[in-house]
């Protein structure tokens, strides 16, 4: 379970946010992002010493000023459900794609990567990687994909 996933599933719940300067903010989480920036509604702000209080309808807290957050216990049940359903959704089969040279016909795989290293010889390098097809399409193939 990732901290930010927990936070995301805590949307709509009451929570306490303590900032690095010691101020605390109690409110309902409206939204949060990948920087832990947080939007709270119906907030009660407490000073560092805990002797002054303010209420504000909403506030935006920058993520990098947060020391910690207290979230209600029930959120943990939600986040576990969500992570489980996410892993169920993962499509079966191996991740393919990304890279060429899957079907080598006799040629060694070294021709595949060459286009990356030397720009000058890329036409030739790419053509070798393509094996049998290379003879026909060497010119435009090598030029288009050899970056």
């Amino acid at each position: 379970m990732l901290p930010l996933s927990l936070l995301k599933s805590a949307q709509g719940h009451p929570m306490l946010v303590e900032l690095k300067n010691g101020e605390t903010y109690n409110g309902h989480l409206v939204n949060c992002d990948t920087w832990m920036n947080i939007h709270l509604r119906e907030v009660i702000c407490t000073s560092k010493d805990g002797d002054r209080f303010w209420r504000m309808p909403e506030c935006y807290v920058r993520g990098n000023t947060i020391k910690y957050l207290r979230v209600p216990d029930e959120v943990i049940d939600k986040v576990q459900e969500e992570t489980k359903s996410r892993s169920d959704r993962r499509p079966p089969g191996v991740g393919r794609g990304r890279g060429r040279g899957g079907r080598e016909e006799g040629s060694k795989p070294k021709g595949v990567g060459r286009g990356l290293e030397d720009g000058g010889g890329r036409g030739a390098g790419a053509a070798r990687g393509r094996g049998g097809v290379g003879g026909r399409a060497a010119g435009n193939r090598g030029g288009g994909r050899g970056r």
Binding site: L19, N21, V43, I44, T46, R52, F53, W54, R55, M56, P57, E58, C59, Y60, V61, R62, T65
Partner: peptide
């Protein structure tokens, strides 16, 4: 340098609500 933004409308100091 911005830590926190909130509207002044409706922001008031209150007595201890806890």
């Amino acid at each position: 340098a911005v830590m926190l933004v909130s509207p002044t409308d409706g922001t008031d100091e209150i007595s201890n609500p806890f």
